[in-house]
Structures are given as structure tokens and as C-alpha cells.
Simulated assay, not measured.
Amino acid sequence: MSRRARVLPGFSLSLGVAVLYLSLVVLLPLSALFLKTAELGWERFTRIVTSSWVASAVRFTLGASLVAALLNVVIGLLIAWVLGRYTFPFARVLDAVIDLPFALPTAVAGIALSTLYADTGLLGGALSSVGFRYPWPAWRGFEHGWRAWPIEWTAYDRISLAPLGVVVAMAFVGLPFVVRTVQPVIEDLGRDVEEAAATLGASRLQIFRAVVLPELAPALLTGFALALARGLGEYGSVIFISGNRPDTEIASQVIIKMIEVNETGTYADATAVAVLLLGASFALLLVINLLQRAAARARSDGAAG
């Protein structure tokens, strides 16, 4: 039997190059992060990650990232559906604009968003003139760290220098992940089942809920996870629109402040916050991955039955 021709080198060489690259780019930096954090000791590490400063920033980062990711799932699904199912003028232009946050420096995006949504900006000024207000949860008594309670709702009348501005910035950088994950699935989704359901008298909502959504669910979960992870690690676009205020401070800002001169903390303290954020991101991605597998298993069992 003749050997099968392979375009790439053999398994051993390919695996060696892949492992070497991953080690240099991912494993070694993460290992250095954990080793630096280990210098603190468990008592100091616990004191840092449970402090009111870190707890407030991480809590706000998780909340804003979750809101932005959920918003991106809804809007990203609509955009992906339009691009994948309809033909219209300038569709290629819109398709290219979706990838703009990938190429645009995040600092430029932050400056643009802060200018647009500032009180004197085009949208920020218009919303302020009509009395725009929205609530955002605030944890009072946050000196207790992660055990902060109760939750009170604070009303904001602006987007820039406020929590909603952080959500907008995270949604901006996370939207392409949802669209690019869902769009190929929509393009490959056959319309025969939808047409058959419509012939049997199903409404559009019933078709979407029973036929379309189960097929899109794994891609939506993947896009949600990617957008959420992107929001958790975002810094450049948030720092400008948040204004470095205590109520809009994200975890990345805390890390930067800890390693700056004349700020509370040290480099090792900053790595402790980084490890906490890394652990939260990994836990969220693990849960979403398990949900994806459960959804795929349920779908395959339903098809077999």
C-alpha cells in the first residue's frame, strides 16, 4: 500500500513546531505569570484579590463584559442574518466594516467613541438634551470586598465617563467575533426545512425558535464566549471613554496602576490580579464549552431519535 501524500511535513515535525510555537507564545508567558504570583504567598495573594479595589474593578469588568456580549449576540445575529441571507447594494462594504475593529487600534477606537458620546459630542449631546437616563447596579459598602451587599441602583445621565460607555466600547471590539462566527453557519443553513415548516403552517417565530435557533446555538455560544473574553481583556478602547473614574474602573486599569510609579501595589501584586482575571476567563470559557457540547449532544440524539 502506497503512503498517502501529504502537503505538510510529517506528524512529528508538525507537532514539534506547533508545540514550540505555543510554548513560546502562550505557555511560557503564562508560566512566568504564575511563578511571579507565587512569590506573594497565599496570604498576601488572598488579601490582594479580596480587597475592595480589586473586587470592585473585577465585578464591574465581569458585569460590563457580560452585558456587551449579550448585546453583541442579539445585534450580531441580526447583522449576520442580513449579510448571509440577503443581497443588497454595498453589502460588501458593510461586510468589510464588520472587520474594522480587528484592524483599528483600540486606542483610536476609544478616542473616537469618547468624542462621539461625550456631553458635547454628536450623540452624547443629543441624548443629554432629551434627558437620557439609565440605571446601573452599584454595590454599597464595598469595603467588604467580594461580600459587598446590598445592591443599589444608580442613575446615570451620560454615556461617556459612565458604565454604559464601557459597555459600548466592549461591544464595539467584540461584535466581529459574533458576526464572523455565526455568518458562515447561516450561509450554509438550508432553507428546505424552513420552507417545509412554513408549508405546515408554522409562524415565523415558531420556525426561528424550533428550526433555525437550534442550528445556530453552538455558533452563538462560541461568538458569545469570544466576545465575552475580548471584553474581559479590553483596555485601550475603554480607558478613554471610562475616564479613569472609580465607578468605571476595569480590572486592566487596576493592573496598570499597580505597576506604575507612586501607585499602591507592586509588579507581583499586579500579576495576582492578572491571575484572578485569567482564572475567571478560563472558568467562563469552560462553562460555555460544556454547554456547547451538551447542546451538540442533545441535537445529535434528537436527530438519531
Rank of each mutant, 00 (worst) to 15 (best):
V287S: 10
I186H: 11
Q183R: 15
D247N: 09
L122I: 11
V73D: 03
T199Q: 12
F11M: 13
F282W: 12
A109Q: 09
P163E: 02
L113G: 00
L291P: 01
I255W: 03
S23M: 07
L216E: 02
V273P: 07
L8S: 06
A126Y: 04
N262K: 01
I98A: 06
S252Y: 01
L62Q: 02
I48W: 00
R92E: 05
I207E: 05
G302T: 03
I259G: 03
A227H: 00
L8A: 13
P176Y: 03
V178T: 04
P184I: 09
D99L: 10
L27E: 08
V173S: 08
I159V: 14
M1K: 04
P163L: 05
S52F: 06
E249D: 08
P163C: 07
L221T: 07
R6F: 10
A219L: 02
S252D: 00
A109I: 15
A268D: 15
A162H: 06
D269G: 08
T266A: 05
D301M: 01
L24C: 09
W149H: 12
L284A: 15
G231V: 06
W136K: 10
I250N: 08
A155C: 09
A229G: 14
T120D: 10
D301V: 06
Q206Y: 11
R4E: 14
E39Q: 15
R59I: 03
